[in-house]
Design a binder for these strands. Structure first.
Lengths: 338, 338
DNA sequence: GTGAAAGCGCTAACAC
DNA sequence: GTGTTAGCGCTTTCAC
């Protein structure tokens, strides 16, 4: 049978309230005698007392638990984010319940329901819907923090990469080498990170007076999409001299297609990708890329969320953290510019 | 203010118990009239009633929650396992609390404490200690299921890869090509997966009458370890013609060292690795490897655990699932055998 | 310095 | 068919 305050109370002869106070470190506050404190602590240790956070949560209306909605835990990028969030939460005494939404809005909604039922103190979400409506509604009952992805106009707080700037930088890396025909292979068109990256790409081209040259294709953050679009691109008459892949998965597809076509990176075609990953240094050549500050995103999101829980106010901070250029060997001058 | 059974009870005029029964789908069982049912359901929907699983858990002594202890969520291999576990649990109506133990036994113990306090119905663990003692003790109060790693002699149930067989198969792939000097670069020596893989390697050599040729080095599942050991191995006088890396990370270090030394894979030296990962197909050459049935491991572990929770008996199943050979292009005949 | 008791939201045994 | 009530384990107000 489980130990409770009652059993300890009975065995030590002190009242439940006294036991509770001692076990919560409130002995001082209530000026409970040293002797009592020690007796109770000893007994608690002896019987391996494990306080019920269920009962405590029910009483206190706080569970020290956060909910985390992630579109795909097995995706290394999301795993990194989840990892950062879980660790940061733990360092503040919070535990995290994770729901894998599998990029499905229904799963997301159901996940939110379970979390609310479990009375989480706050929710961190990488949202997968097209609109913030539902999450905004949830935010009225429990604080919500968006991570990685956000929405066009929303009052919800978020922490993500400055994807626009990432798009600009990636494109500039190529422009500086003299590339003019740069194919941008995108992921899910309506998603915010995608739109911002594309916008960055377009603006960089525009500033270079190359707006006419924009080539935007693709529709999914997948290897298949990267492969298909690259196949098409290199087969066409006016082959691009460089490819900007908007994600790791797209990049892999692109690399596969390029290799199959017999072209060499970077001699025949340059490549820049988004997202960091240790493996990218082991491809030949190593891939030049725009890394996202994953660790910082997770940490910051949790800190802001916990703060808003503590202060009992809704957080309104919307943060875009700067991406990181990781220059390797997949970019060279275009042939035509030689 | 939050809605509860009481508020609904008051507003509809029915007793709390009636409301409870209806909302739990027990209307039939208690032969509650259609009208009552509809009124109550309507009101619950209207006010967006969210049942408190805290209160329910307190009352029922079941929370429909599992605890998951993972040594490093950001490691793609563990992320895959976590993903499978989370999804399988969800499909049975369970939510998962994840603790990242960071390969630290203290964190593991603390993680267990929080989980027990939160009254999880069961715990899935990739343990990081050297002995099963503590987990066996925990198993007396709540069912524990080991995953990926196990212990030499333990009564705890587990589901993992047949690492011994993996070690044998990897080694045989090399032996069949005529390799005789095969360096095995291991990870943490005392860990079960490592020991079993090494044992498989040794037995495969023995069966080929090559026990004298065994070369076992290394001490960590890390890129650095793989790099260092490979550097030493290729620099030595009697260079191995093949390397068996006991993990992905070790492999990457090995590849780096081999490239730096100017040797080519597989012409100068063959390579076989453990663990699957999509990126391995994009290295040049693509790496031949032994994949672990991660999805199945996670699924099976959760199923067995839930079953033992349901039946209220301790599971004693200890399962080793067969690994998968993934043959690519990193193995060739050794030079000397030509 | 310590204790008694109410109540958090829920289920289920028992009553009618 | 529906209602009353005890109790899950905890915190906290009020009392002494």
């Amino acid at each position: 049978m489980k130990e409770t305050l009652v059993t300890i109370s009975k065995r030590t002869g002190f009242a439940i309230s006294t036991v509770s106070r001692v076990l919560n470190g409130q002995a001082e506050k209530y000026r409970i005698s040293r002797k009592t404190v020690e007796l109770i602590l000893a007994e608690a240790r002896r019987c391996d007392y494990t306080p019920s956070l269920l009962a405590k949560g029910l009483r206190m209306k706080r569970t020290n638990t956060l909910g985390l909605l992630i579109p795909q835990v097995s995706n290394p990028y999301f795993a990194d984010i989840a990892s950062a969030i879980i660790r940061e939460a733990r360092s503040h005494g919070y535990t995290v319940m994770v729901v894998d939404t599998m990029e499905n809005e229904e799963n997301e909604q159901e996940g939110i329901r379970t979390m609310l039922s479990r009375r989480v103190d706050g929710i961190v979400a990488v949202p997968c819907g097209r609109t913030p409506d539902h999450l905004e509604k949830v935010n009225r009952s429990v604080p919500v923090m968006l991570v990685d992805r956000s929405f066009e106009r929303t009052s919800l707080p978020y922490v993500c990469t400055d994807n626009y700037r990432g798009g600009v930088e990636a494109t500039r890396i190529l422009l500086q080498r003299g590339h003019r025909r740069i194919a941008c292979i995108q992921g899910v068109p309506h998603s915010m990170p995608n739109r911002r990256r594309v916008q960055g790409y377009l603006d960089a081209l525009r500033q270079a007076g190359l707006q006419e040259e924009a080539i935007i294709t693709g529709d999914a953050f997948s290897l298949e999409n990267g492969y298909r679009q690259t196949k098409l691109a290199v087969a066409g008459p006016d082959r691009p001299t460089a490819i900007f892949a908007l994600s790791n998965t797209i990049l892999l597809g692109a690399v596969k297609a390029i290799r199959e076509s017999g072209l060499r990176i970077p001699e025949d075609i340059s490549v820049v990708s988004f997202d960091d990953n240790p493996y990218l240094d082991f491809l030949v050549p190593a891939i030049t890329r725009i890394g996202q500050p994953v660790e910082e995103i997770g940490k910051t999101a949790v800190r802001l969320l916990l703060e808003s829980i503590r202060e009992e106010v809704r957080c309104r901070t919307q943060l875009q953290l700067p991406p990181e250029r990781i220059v390797r060997d997949s970019v060279a001058n275009p042939r035509t510019a030689k």
